[in-house]
Amino acid sequence: MSAQLQENRDSVTLYGRRWSRENADLSRTFDILVVIIMFIAITAAFHLHFQLTVGDWDFWVDWKDRQYWVTATPILLMAFPAALQYVFWEKFRLPIAATVCMLGLTIGIWITRYSGFHTWSYFPFSMVWPATMIAGGLILDAVLLLTGSALITAIVGGMSFGLLFYPANWPLLAPFRLPMEAMNSLVSVGDYIGYAYTRTSTPEYLRFIERGTLRTFGGHSAVVSAFFSGFVCILVYLLWWYIGMAFARVATLPNRMKIFMGLHDRGAEGKDA
């Protein structure tokens, strides 16, 4: 056993403090309960956030474009990992928050794609498969562990978070970018899937995708989008790190309600009402 954990028969030393065996076991039970509850809560909250923000870009294979999907997904995903990294790291020195978020999100997404989109609404998985976002979360956690610094995690981790999204998903996406001919037109396999499987309320023009621009990037719009996304991720990371800090603080307010109700509250106000 390492210096972290030293045990003998009745007591155990955890991180430099002696615990009775019974208390240590209780604490471990508490760990397990809280971990399960936290994992479900984070999964549910992050998944809701994801559905409401990234939404269609991740729902459909014919929305996963080189511009908006690549730019928007990492930026919108950054909120929860950054805020929870503050809590997990500052309070517990645990570099796992981003990975927990991404793993929970992945599980949550697969549940809705399987039940809501596939089983219930008949969409094939080739149309509604989710992107993978775990790679970015692993990098955020590892950088925070190695540097211990929110700023460096924002810069290095945030940039990597944006940059890795597209290449990590390319092996999933590439089969759907093969060219094909449909009705004398050139389309990608993904376009055709979106065309073939009717979404009554989502016609073609509603797709918020790259439509082409005169400001050309030599056909490398995904690279430009990924760098832009990484840059914004740096800022969003810092913003949410501080939001995490604000939410982790325990704040109290003087109880004005008591005063309104005719009860004296000397403690907070320091004088008679």
Partner: peptide, 22 residues
Amino acid sequence: IAILWLAWWTRRPLLIPRLVAI
């Protein structure tokens, strides 16, 4: 990979002992 990373950390005492240590 994510599960391996989480297992690496969660196999040891997590919450209260770490909070106390900090």
